[in-house]
Simulated assay, not measured.
Amino acid sequence: MEDTERYRRLIEAAFPELEAREVVFLGAGWDSTTVLVDGELVFRFPRRDDVARALEVERCLLPRLAPRLPLPIPRLDLAGGPLPGFPWRFAGYRALPGRPMAELPAGDIRPERVGHALGAFVRALHDAPAELAERCGAASYTPEGWVERHWQLVQEILPIVEQTLGMEPARRLLAFWAEYRSDPRSRQFTPAIVHADLNPDHVLIDPATGEVTGIIDFGDVCIGDPAIDFAGFSEEIVAAMLTAYGLADPGLLHRRQALARAIPLYATHFGTLFSDETVLSAGLAELARQLGG
């Protein structure tokens, strides 16, 4: 369990006007530790240099995106640090209503309603001028660069896959992503601003009504393949998303299926790079399921 008292001290040092009476630990993800202050303010504390840089991109970009989007997103209005004992800037925002979709019972999720709201959101996000993200320092990928990014990821995790799952699963992994790399459809998209980590953990829903109330955690926002923002959801939700999204490029669903298989690549890479056995084990377990290893 994280030391919430530590975060209370950091918040009060950065914002003396705030009396942090109750600090509740919300979670420690791959990138940040998150706490809720007095049930009203969410603070995110980066865990690495690259995450701190990404947080600055969010602070710049999200206020520019918010007026264009049909769902609420965080406004990182509070920024503190670095401080003694914490080497990076951290940020806070007023908590959005709702609970993460991933925490709700499956029976409480209405796929058509959720998918329609997400499709309209993603359409507006992808239609926003890419220059907004470029000016804020977000990573920008050409179609070729996007494909090569994933191919490089496969190359980097291949040794650990061979070591833990065996040569045959590693061969299947390489073959799948070699086909993705060689398929012209993988490059046939217009780069757009993408959330790039849109999944049930980052979609807020009102449990009483089933309505989507907000989208959070834009730490991976970049300019890339629009299909990535469909990769984190079930087929049923994606079908509803597309009814609201409108005209999509012909290869979007093909690329979405490939990019959905990339999620454990990132987990395996992260777990290896940062010696996080929990994340590494989860990534390898999903790869084993995919590859029959």
Rank of each mutant, 00 (worst) to 15 (best):
L78K: 05
T4A: 10
L287C: 01
M167I: 02
Q257S: 14
P105M: 11
L83E: 12
R6M: 10
E235I: 02
R8E: 12
P97V: 06
G98F: 11
R68P: 00
A282Q: 11
R123E: 12
T209P: 10
C222P: 00
T164M: 14
V122G: 04
P67W: 01
A231T: 00
A178C: 05
P184I: 00
E235N: 02
A282N: 08
L41C: 12
R149Q: 14
L62R: 03
Y266E: 15
I11T: 09
G293E: 02
A139D: 14
T34D: 10
L247D: 14
G251T: 04
A208P: 01
Q155F: 00
V23S: 08
Q155Y: 08
F218R: 03
L61Y: 09
P250D: 11
L291C: 06
L62W: 00
D38L: 02
M101G: 01
V37D: 04
S140G: 09
D217E: 11
E134I: 13
A170N: 01
G119L: 00
I215Y: 06
V57I: 09
A267Y: 15
L61F: 05
L78M: 15
A106N: 07
P97E: 02
T243C: 11
L273V: 15
R59W: 07
F90S: 05
P159K: 03
E2N: 01
T213Q: 10
D77L: 13
A175I: 01
